[in-house]
Amino acid sequence: MDGALIIAKGIHKSYPIGRGKRHPAVKDVSLELYKGETLALVGESGCGKSTLARILMRLTEADSGEIYFDGDQISGLAGRDFRPYRRRMQMVFQDPASSLDPRMKVKDIIAEPLKTWHIFDNKAEILERVKELLDMVELKESALERYPHQFSGGQKQRIGIARAIALEPELLVCDESVSALDVSVQAQILNLLKKLKGELGLSCLFISHDLSVVNFIADRVCVMRGGMLCETAETEELYANPRHEYTKYLLSSIPVVPGMQGA
């Protein structure tokens, strides 16, 4: 791990809830994501972890705070100045059904980022790259001409991952990317993400509410509650020796099958 890819300092974000009141979604969050690591952001639903991820990707604007990407301040950059950073960070979404346009063929879905950034000059090269990406996410070439509704949830998520890595980003944000899937499919997707991370040298921000999933994939964990970070630690350290009360509570709520040791 050499240096920080993302540094966030004092991020605040609140949403209006009517009658002039505002609900704080993210309160004074600072974190660092080092190059090559997988940082997990855990917490219950509504604790602000997705909002934080979107702020880091500048899909939502923070009220205050600073964000640095690879040493450059990206918070406050105008649209045109920020654009070069766009392709360096990509996202895999929670709901595989709504994250793929139902009217586009798989080849067009995966080709969209390539076309947007004019990475290739002609269609043949784009198709070649799309096939390569399909192979990387372990889908067959027959998927090219099909529509998203013809695939299972796990397969759709693979298509979403292929789209996200098409631009060879440095940062991959996975927003609850396996929580909509069956447990066995979760494992396949997690293994795929781990494999791709190794092959592509990705850094990964992994958002989840599931501590056993996090234990499998993350190097470090940030525990979030009510918009604030309450504990950041190495994964093994956190599981072996949780310091914050809330972390202990979360760990104690992992279901345990009687007769089995640990997760």
Binding site: M57, L59, R83, R86, R87, M89, Q90, M91, F93, Q94, D95, S98, S99, L100, D101, P102, R103, M104, E112, P113, T116, W117, G160, R163, L167
Partner: peptide
Amino acid sequence: ENDYVLAARAMGVRGYAIIFRHILPNLI
């Protein structure tokens, strides 16, 4: 509201392209 529009924004697709590539075909 669909994530594919957010995905398009995240990959840097411009406004007019989002309208013509994602909104209009789904409105047909």
